[in-house]
């Protein structure tokens, strides 16, 4: 049997996994042009290694994810963003 401290629940605990629906940040804030010249804003969409986060994590719409990818690659070209990084954040 479980040890003394095991708490036995009669009914299964319903941990409500409220799925917080993702939204496209650009549509919501009405941004239509993603500027490649300010790296702070673009950094939010990169992970620690400097890779672009996928849509399923950031919740971006397809149109803006593609524009984001283009501007990130342009920023990398002029050394505002690294291609590879180990501790970007």
């Amino acid at each position: 049997m479980g040890n003394k401290t095991d708490i036995k629940y009669l009914s299964p605990v319903d941990i409500e996994l409220k799925h917080q629906n993702k939204y496209c940040r650009f549509k919501k804030m009405g941004i239509d042009y993603i500027d490649y010249k300010d790296p702070e804003f673009l950094m939010r969409f990169l992970n620690e290694q400097g890779k672009i986060l996928p849509r399923r994590i950031t919740g971006n719409s397809l149109k803006f994810q593609r524009r984001l990818a283009v501007s990130v690659k342009r920023a990398r070209q002029i050394a505002l963003l690294p291609y590879v990084a180990d501790n970007l954040k």
Partner: peptide, 9 residues
């Protein structure tokens, strides 16, 4: 002006 590059060029 003078800025630090994120990788060496």
């Amino acid at each position: 002006g003078l800025k630090k590059l994120k990788y060496t060029i």
